[in-house]
C-alpha cells in the first residue's frame, strides 16, 4: 500500500513538473514570437524594429531598476491594453485581443526572470 502511494505521489509530482516546464517553454516561445520584434530576443529593447527612427526605446527587461518600479499588475495591464493605457507610447501595442489571459500571466513571470527582480509589491 505504501509503495502504491509513493508511486502515485511520484506520478503526480512528475506530472506537475511536466506541466510547469511546458508552460515556461511555451511562454518563452510566445515572448520570442510576439515581443522580440521590438524588445529583442533577450529582452534588451533591441529588436529589429528598433531602427534610428523608432520614436521611443522599448523597455529593456533586463534593467532591474526600471522593472522594479512596476508591479505584476502594472505589467499585465500594459501588455493587455498597450502603452496609452499607462500613459506610455502607443508604439507598445495592446495584446489583449491576441493573447490569452494565461499567455499574459506567463509573460509577466517571464519578464521577472529576465529582470531578476520582484517588482513593486501590493
Amino acid at each position: 500500500m505504501k509503495k502504491l502511494m509513493t508511486i502515485v505521489a511520484f506520478a503526480v509530482l512528475a506530472f506537475t513538473f511536466a506541466m510547469a516546464s511546458a508552460t515556461a517553454e511555451e511562454t518563452a516561445k510566445v515572448f520570442k514570437f510576439y515581443c522580440s520584434q521590438c524588445h529583442g530576443l533577450e529582452g534588451k529593447g533591441d529588436g529589429p524594429n528598433v531602427t534610428k527612427d523608432f520614436p521611443v526605446s522599448p523597455r529593456n527587461f533586463t534593467n532591474a531598476k526600471e522593472m522594479d518600479k512596476l508591479s505584476d499588475a502594472d505589467l499585465k495591464n500594459v501588455i493587455m491594453d498597450g502603452g496609452p493605457a499607462v500613459s506610455k507610447s502607443p508604439m507598445m501595442p495592446p495584446w489583449g485581443k491576441t493573447l490569452t489571459d494565461a499567455d499574459v500571466d506567463g509573460l509577466v513571470k517571464h519578464l521577472r526572470t529576465l529582470c531578476k527582480c520582484k517588482g513593486k509589491q501590493g
Partner: peptide
C-alpha cells in the same frame, strides 16, 4: 502613424520621401 503601433512594424514612405518605420 500615431494612435496605433502600425508604423512600428511596417515600413512606408515618410514625408521627405524617405523610407521610415519598423522591419518585422
Amino acid at each position: 502613424t500615431k494612435k496605433m503601433p502600425c508604423s512600428g512594424c511596417h515600413q512606408y514612405t515618410g514625408r521627405k520621401k524617405n523610407i521610415v518605420g519598423g522591419r518585422s
